[in-house]
Simulated assay, not measured.
Amino acid sequence: MDVSPDFGAVGGLGDLRLIVGALLTFVLIFAVLMLIICAIVWGVATSSGNYHAATRARAGVLVAVGTAALAGAGVAWVNFLLGVGETL
């Protein structure tokens, strides 16, 4: 059996792909900006002895890295699931 999704049946698929691509770009840009800002705050707060701010900034760095990883891996995950779906 060769079963695969019919993406041609969706009206406005090209527009939908553009919108999703633009949203993914915004997410990655904001995640990188958040990573840069939080890393700077983490360094300054640690060097000045403000450990509460350093802890918050470290959490921000981890959230930014996780967000960028999830956004970047989302496309690969969907492609993998579509590949698995074709073999079922």
Rank of each mutant, 00 (worst) to 15 (best):
M1R: 07
M1Y: 09
M1E: 09
M1H: 11
D2T: 13
D2H: 14
D2V: 13
V3H: 07
V3P: 05
S4P: 04
S4A: 13
P5G: 09
P5V: 10
P5S: 10
P5C: 12
P5W: 12
D6A: 09
F7Y: 14
F7W: 13
F7Q: 05
G8Y: 12
G8T: 14
V10F: 06
V10L: 14
L13N: 05
D15H: 08
D15W: 05
D15N: 12
L16K: 10
R17D: 06
I19P: 01
I19L: 15
V20P: 04
G21I: 13
A22P: 03
L23M: 13
T25P: 04
T25L: 12
T25F: 10
F26A: 13
F26M: 09
F30H: 12
F30W: 11
V32P: 00
V32L: 13
L33Y: 05
L33T: 04
M34N: 06
M34E: 08
L35K: 01
I37Q: 11
C38Y: 00
C38F: 03
V41C: 06
V41H: 05
W42Y: 13
W42P: 00
G43N: 15
G43I: 02
G43H: 13
T46L: 02
T46S: 02
S47N: 05
S48F: 09
G49N: 01
Y51T: 02
Y51A: 06
Y51C: 02
H52P: 06
H52L: 02
H52N: 09
H52Q: 12
A53N: 15
A54T: 00
R56Q: 07
R56E: 11
A57D: 01
A57Q: 03
A59D: 12
A59G: 06
A59N: 11
V61Q: 10
L62N: 15
L62D: 11
L62R: 08
V63P: 01
V65D: 00
V65N: 02
V65S: 03
G66D: 08
G66F: 11
T67A: 14
T67E: 11
A68N: 08
A69W: 04
A69V: 03
L70P: 00
A71L: 07
G74D: 04
G74P: 02
A76D: 05
A76C: 05
A76V: 14
W77G: 00
N79D: 08
F80H: 02
L81G: 02
L81H: 06
L82F: 09
G83L: 05
G83C: 08
G85D: 03
G85R: 04
L88Q: 04
